[in-house]
Amino acid sequence: MIKTLRLRALATVLGVALGLGAVGVVHAAGEAEPPIAVDWSFSGPFGRFDRAQLQRGFQVYKESCAACHGMELVAFRNLADPGGPGFTEEQVKVIAADYTIEDGPDDLGDMFERPGEPKDRFPSPFPNENAAAAANGGAVPPDFSVIAKARAGGTDYIYSLMVGYEDEPPAGVDVGDKYYNHYFPGHAIAMAPPLFDEGVEYTDGTPMTVDNYAKDVSAFLMWAAEPKMEERKRIGFQVIIYLILLSALLYFTKRKIWSAIDH
């Protein structure tokens, strides 16, 4: 299945190489259902993140996920980096100060706690994996730094997972004390549904539905996993245009040189 996914994606790349620029939607299967294909603002060769969506996604992460999922590779200052959610330096300081960071040792050799600063990374909610597992019925909530690249289907999968819960498992299926989800491999997931309508207070008028929360947090996680995506696509465009022009020049040079030769 992963193979079909890769082949399809490969075809996509060849399409880009030919200048067609179409980006197919990636599916993954397994025992779980293939994830729902979402039309992301960041897909395709010219795709960009939607700043407002990333800011909302960050809010969802902070209020609904951060209690269980860390993001140890992302620093608060990254929230103001170009190509990201576009918070201002001031906003980042405020966001960081909301978190408590353990620092030290101080001059007396003691660890101490202080408010977060932009240079700090997002703190992990549990001191270690055992503590995380103990608090979550034996399952460890994965760190979010690269989660959008660490699952087949990427953001489509995360979105689908968020909207794929079922109150009751289908007849004949027993999930024990876990929850039934259409898209999770094996269907029984230890994470309780984390999102509810009206659960996060949006201030920009976006309807406060699970569907929107799911999309926004997925987009945010894509940025967290691939913070240089916009720069990458921009440079890529320049590189490919340059190479195409160069190849044209070389083609005509080569043809000129060979024109007098039978070959």
Partner: peptide
């Protein structure tokens, strides 16, 4: 050009 298409537009596909 093919190489760049992978690097810049689908760096993780393979």
């Amino acid at each position: 050009i093919l190489f760049a298409a992978f690097v810049f537009y689908a760096p993780n596909i393979l």
